[in-house]
Amino acid sequence: MTYFLQNLVNALQWGSFYALIALGYSMVYSILMLFNFAHGDIFMVGAYIGFGVASALVAFNSLGLVVLPGWLLLVLTILVSMLLTSFVGMLVERIGYRPLRDAPRASAAITGLMIGIILETGNLALLGAQRVRLPTMIQSVTYDLGGVFITNKKIMIVLVSLGLMLTLHQFVRRTKWGMAMRAMAYDYAVVPLMGVPLNKIAAMTFAIGSALAAAAGILYGVAYPVLDPYMGIVFGWKAFVAAILGGRGSIMGACLAGFLLGFIEIFVTMVFPSTLRDLIAYGIIMLILVFRPHGFFGEAYSARLRL
């Protein structure tokens, strides 16, 4: 039982990363009908920006220029990195996708792959092949809850992720931009005729998705501090799977599927050798998709893109 609970906690943490990244895929798809295949690499860029911001803050701190407690450094790192990464996302949209909005969807998909390669190799060119380490900002404290070991970091990661998801949910429900995003998901062409600036909403969607990916990147770095330029590839693909599994364009679906993915991966390793993890986990997910091809919350219709 404790073994099960222990894995449950690990799965929650692992699922948080997938869920946060999957949201970016899902939101962009729902309003623009394109999969931003560079999104996994945005996650990587976010983690690296987090590395830069954290290193700077820690350096200031040790020089005595600012004196801040560790948790505040982490909060600042997350917020500043989310902001900076959102600009990267907007840049990707402006340069890579906006000119291709009326182009065949395959062109947009290829653009995403190319942007991904550019971000990875750009990072290599800039920082070299050496891996970097996210500075430690908070010390690990382990709580023993009747044989289940929970670190303060795990609690923090899960709570921050859930907080961000709730904030996004509120944003979509309460603001006019969120309302416009929902409308665009159903019919894209009429939205501008209601006085809504399409490009602004598109840029905003990329910005939000990228900011969430950056948060995921830093939280990932808090749990597994070693970063490398290719860390976004596999994570990106798996989060993409979560976005599809959740139902294309569904926020709720992307979150749930992200967590589900985390659970399946972790629980598979409870039973099978960890080398078989992805083989079995993604076999299960393929089976789910065979029976629910539109995902959990996907609608059984194909929305058309006009304009």
Partner: peptide
Amino acid sequence: AAQGLGRTFQNLALWRHMTVLEHVKMAHYS
């Protein structure tokens, strides 16, 4: 649209899973 041109579509261009009230409120966007 903001200058004062309203329009409807030949194939209904509604937002399937939004309420009637939300449709009309959305049009107040600007």
